[in-house]
């Protein structure tokens, strides 16, 4: 009796059906690389931020606001070295470090000043009278705005409140002259690389 199904070609064919099973064995045998993936060394980290105020009339009167995030990822620890002196003028400067990769981030920020901008804010309860960007030493962006690394501050009567430092990256526009009340510097768009708020006191 002739049966198409039982001839040799067809038997071979049916075996072919199980090809994927053998292929899987092949896949698993030749692809088993157990190499551990290389750990990523996180970049662009900001571990330490400081705003250092110096009394214009008393170089020993220094107030430092600092924020330290050990690996640049965890919630930073905020600290203030002491109170400001009432009715005094201070100059302020900023340091920004990546302690993990040992890099001076501020240097990069100044190099790419056209993409960066510092904005400051205080709340309503603290008597901060004025702030200006020191145009003699503060880096100036191509659009004419000053970056805001070097600033001068006038403090009023004794009071407590908050002080906020923001570093905005690639804002679509910035203005170093204006802001909402209690804000020094205005920006639209972009994203904040630094956004820290300290509780401060004027005595």
């Amino acid at each position: 009796m002739k049966s198409i199904f039982l001839n040799l070609t067809n038997m071979k064919t049916i075996k072919l059906l199980f090809l994927p099973l053998f292929a899987l064995a092949l896949f698993s045998s030749c692809s088993d690389d157990d190499d551990a993936p290389a750990p990523v060394n996180p970049s662009e980290l900001i571990t330490n931020v400081e705003v250092i105020f110096t009394n214009e009339n008393d170089p020993n009167d220094v107030v430092t606001l600092s924020a330290v995030s050990a690996d640049g990822i965890v919630d930073p620890t905020l600290s203030v070295s002491g109170p400001f002196t009432a009715n005094a003028d201070y100059t302020a400067t900023i340091t920004i470090l990546d302690d993990v990769n040992n890099e001076d981030i501020l240097e990069e920020v100044v190099e790419e000043k056209d993409e960066h901008f510092f904005a400051y804010a205080v709340n309503q309860t603290i008597n901060v009278l004025d702030m200006i960007r020191d145009d003699s030493i503060d880096p100036q962006r191509t659009d004419g705005n000053y970056l805001g690394v070097e600033t001068a501050w006038s403090f009023g009567a004794a009071s407590t409140g908050t002080f906020t430092l923001q570093l905005v990256h690639e804002a679509s526009s910035v203005d170093d002259q204006f802001g909402e009340p209690f804000e020094f510097g205005l920006y639209t768009g972009g994203e904040l690389d630094i956004n820290n708020t300290w509780n401060i006191e004027i005595q």
């Binding site: 571990t47 931020v49 690996d71 990822i73 956004n195």
Partner: peptide, 12 residues
Amino acid sequence: TELGIRIIGQAG
């Protein structure tokens, strides 16, 4: 998440 937020380093 329950808190809704997480602080990332200095960026808030």
